[in-house]
């Protein structure tokens, strides 16, 4: 139950930040989808429409210097950390203004300035890597926290288990966040997993608490995540959070998601959408509707402006093909 007074442990200004951040993610990804249909974005893309509350929560909670790692479904988590909309859309469109000027694409969004240490497209690979930045914080005796996002499918790959064990053995300052959207890719996670809760039911194997949260309720996400981040920052080791959520679209651009029952999709989109839930939440707290709507209108404008900027940005110079293979900036492998 949420308190009736908005000035509770979360408070009005944080809630408005959560609202604004969720809208940034939702509206940018919807725009990305439109740009696909216009053939302005090539390749593939994995949208996380419907999962915004999770990334947004951490975007609001984390401090400058904290590290995040995400998957190829990582537009949300990148935007949530403060990366620019034009940088993300520009990268998807293969423009010079993209975060990596077209060298990485949709599945590899990286923005070190904002703590986004990469998006990883091999399932599970980034979990051991995220341990590494946490290890560096511990080694340097500094207070950054590392957060690692992944999907339910990741819990069945070996790297996940290796990394959780090592994180607990070394008491690393890291939070593992499983976004359980019920489908690994095209297959229901329950059909291919030995336990009901793919992440949380494995936690005890690594001496961690079983934490399951409604990932579509930004307030609940905020409370649970804050505890885990504080624990890590205070030097009390890793946490594993399983956040229940649902992606509104298919696995990737190529997938219409027909394997999911219509009723199930309808229920999640109509009744459990994190944006709908939060709009109502803010109204219930008697936040002025004009304020709620003006934040949304402002974000629509920002996304439109960023889209136009990205469209007018030049394409990369073909010389970029040969840069940054090695640290001297080039690609020469012999003298």
């Amino acid at each position: 139950m949420n308190s009736k007074n908005i000035n509770d442990d979360i408070g009005e200004s944080t809630r408005l930040k959560l609202w604004e951040t969720m809208l940034k993610l939702r509206l940018t990804e919807k725009k990305a989808y439109d740009l696909f249909l216009q053939n302005l974005i090539k390749g593939t893309s994995h949208l996380a429409l419907g999962q915004e509350a999770i990334g947004a929560t951490f975007g609001v909670l984390l401090e400058k210097g904290d590290y995040t790692f995400c998957t190829y479904r990582g537009h949300n988590h990148t935007l949530a950390r403060g990366s620019s909309i034009v940088g993300v859309l520009g990268e998807l469109m293969g423009r010079q203004c993209g975060l990596m000027r077209g060298k990485g694409g949709s599945m590899h969004l990286t923005d070190v300035e904002n703590g986004v240490m990469g998006s990883y497209a091999i399932i599970g690979a980034h979990i051991p890597i995220a341990n590494g930045t946490a290890l560096a914080s511990q080694y340097n005796k500094t207070s950054e926290v590392t957060v690692c996002f992944f999907g339910d499918g990741t819990t069945n790959i070996g790297a996940f288990h290796e990394a959780l064990n090592m994180a607990q053995v070394w008491k690393l300052p890291i939070v593992f966040v499983c976004e359980n959207n019920l489908y690994m890719e095209y297959t229901a996670i329950g059909d291919v997993t030995a336990v009901e809760h793919p992440a949380a039911d494995r936690a005890s194997a690594y001496g961690m608490e079983k934490i399951i949260v409604d990932g579509n309720d930004a307030d609940e996400m905020y409370r649970i995540s804050k505890k885990a981040i504080d624990k890590a920052r205070e030097g009390n080791g890793p946490s594993l959070i399983e956040a229940k959520t649902y992606r509104h679209s298919g696995h990737s651009r190529a997938d219409p998601g027909k394997y999911r029952p219509d009723e199930e999709v309808k229920d999640w989109v109509e009744n459990k959408d994190p944006i709908k839930i939060y709009r109502q939440r803010l109204k219930d707290f008697n936040i002025n509707e004009t304020k709620i709507n003006s934040i949304e209108e402002d974000m629509i404008r920002q996304v439109e402006e960023a889209t136009e900027m990205a469209k007018s940005s030049p394409i990369p110079d073909i010389k970029e093909i040969y840069t940054d293979v090695w640290a001297d900036g080039g690609s020469e492998w012999h003298n």
Partner: peptide, 8 residues
């Protein structure tokens, strides 16, 4: 390094 355009 390459994918991050030299950020990392």
């Amino acid at each position: 390094r390459y994918m991050s355009d030299g950020q990392i």
